[in-house]
Design a protein around this nucleic acid. Structure first.
Length: 423
DNA sequence: TCTGGGGTCCTAGGACCC
DNA sequence: TCTGGGGTCCTAGGACCC
């Protein structure tokens, strides 16, 4: 049986989540900012219509946002994750196999669905059900490959006449759409590739689909060859239901204010290491390698730049916050230099093993690592419970460097104090 | 003054081995 | 005054995604 994929994508997801609990904002433009209130990362339809671009630094458009009466929100990730989980669980009820691709997108396997009902009808059912149960609007693209399903979804968003659902299983329809799509709108073709492709005379998705797979592989890469084949309806990417285990865990942030002292940086690195260790334990992994990085402001050419990123192997892989923090602090001492204004720092864990699976080598002897499963699990339970936090002294009490979130909405669905009240 | 964070995959090139 | 060839493993960096 020929495979059929659907891509379900939430419209303007973060902005829509904010509006769910603020009916007074109906029809008003909304933008959501990145961490630290730096850039615009999501826009409502009204904000897009005003010409506000994705990714622009807020300070460049602050006046304009005010003039236009745009509602501004800091990122409220707890809220978006919770709404996302609700949307995804509905999709899992509707389709037998679902791959959660990102916070606001999922691929569905619709192979065989057409027997009872038409594919586009099924797409409309998805839209309706999700809309009814969560208030979130989605668009649905349906096609024989993931790459085509992405394009179908794109079209469903772009052309209101489609009613938010595009069935692209018909080859004639595929080529009509591909002729309209510029290469940079193809999934997997970014800024650099699209520049190169255009220089080679490949301007539309149809141009790429018509190119020779072998020479594309030679001149570009095996990845682009797969994209080309997928555009021609030949599936190269399959549905991945089980989330593959992580290869690396990163925790990094820009600071609310520049950091200039070792003490503050030490706090920040401790904090990020603790967050990374929590994620590691959630994954049920232990890590053998830890690295940290510091960054000055690369946008400011007149300032001296320093961006060290030292790393180290741990004697024995671990998921214990205290051991990881100690290692991170050692690395910080090796690379710290006074006299710079640091903008950002981060911690990265790599080289994972399953908890309990690691064989220590014959010669790593002696010093029993301070490690306690019980302690770490108590730490996690308390910190995930929402009734206060327990942390290492090194993380700092005041965290003067922590990020700015001036326009944060309440955690409507994940904190009792913030529950919306119907009057 | 003010520019996010967290991931993946692929490739090229160096180190090392026989 | 000459200096192979081929394989594997690892790392850094580039490109992409949301």
């Amino acid at each position: 049986m020929k495979p059929v994929f659907a891509l379900v994508d939430c419209n303007n997801f973060y902005a829509s989540c904010e509006r769910l609990f603020r009916p007074d904002l109906a029809g008003r433009p909304i933008v959501v900012l990145s961490n630290n209130d730096g850039c615009i990362v999501a826009r409502s339809a009204e904000a897009k219509a005003l010409g506000i671009k994705m990714g622009v630094p807020v300070y460049q458009v602050e006046r304009y946002l005010q003039q236009q009466g745009v509602a501004i929100f800091s990122s409220n990730y707890a809220l978006y994750a919770d709404i996302s989980a609700r949307v995804m669980s509905i999709l899992e009820q509707l389709a037998p196999r679902v791959e959660i691709y990102s916070i606001d997108e999922a691929f569905l396997d619709l192979t065989g669905v057409a027997a009872s009902t038409s594919l586009s009808e099924f797409g409309s059912q998805i839209r309706q059900t999700v809309g009814q149960h969560t208030g979130i609007r989605v668009c649905v693209g349906i096609a024989p490959t993931k790459t085509l399903a992405k394009l179908a979804n794109h079209a469903a968003k772009q052309y209101p006449a489609t009613g938010g659902v595009v069935d692209l299983t018909d080859p004639a329809r595929q080529s009509r759409l591909l002729a309209l799509v510029p290469v940079n709108d193809i999934w997997g073709v970014g800024r650099r590739l699209s520049q190169r492709l255009q220089a080679d005379g490949i301007r539309t998705a149809l141009d790429l689909a018509a190119a020779d797979p072998k020479s594309i592989r030679q001149q570009y890469s095996v990845v682009l060859e797969r994209t080309l084949r997928e555009l021609n309806g030949e599936p190269c990417l399959s549905l991945e239901e089980v989330t593959p285990t992580k290869q690396q865990i990163i925790c990094s942030r820009s600071f609310g204010q520049r950091i200039t002292t070792f003490q503050e940086m030490r706090e920040a690195i401790c904090e990020y290491t603790s967050r990374a260790a929590e994620k590691l334990r959630q994954e049920k992994r232990i890590a053998k390698r830890l690295s940290i990085f510091l960054r000055t402001n690369r946008f400011n050419a007149s300032e001296p730049q320093y961006m060290p990123s030292p790393g180290a192997e741990l004697p024995i892989p671990t998921d214990d916050t205290r051991e990881l923090v100690a290692a991170a602090a050692r690395l910080l001492r090796t690379c710290w230099k006074d006299g710079y204004r640091y903008m950002k720092a981060g911690v990265m864990l790599t080289d994972f093993y399953e908890t309990g699976s690691f064989q220590p080598d014959l010669f790593s002897s002696g010093s029993a690592p301070l490690r306690s499963k019980a302690l770490m699990s108590v730490l996690d339970t308390i910190n995930q419970g929402g009734h206060g936090r327990v942390f290492l002294a090194g993380q700092g009490l005041h965290q003067t460097w922590s990020m700015q979130r001036r326009s944060l909405s309440p955690a409507y669905t994940t904190r009792w104090q913030d529950l919306p009240v119907a009057k």
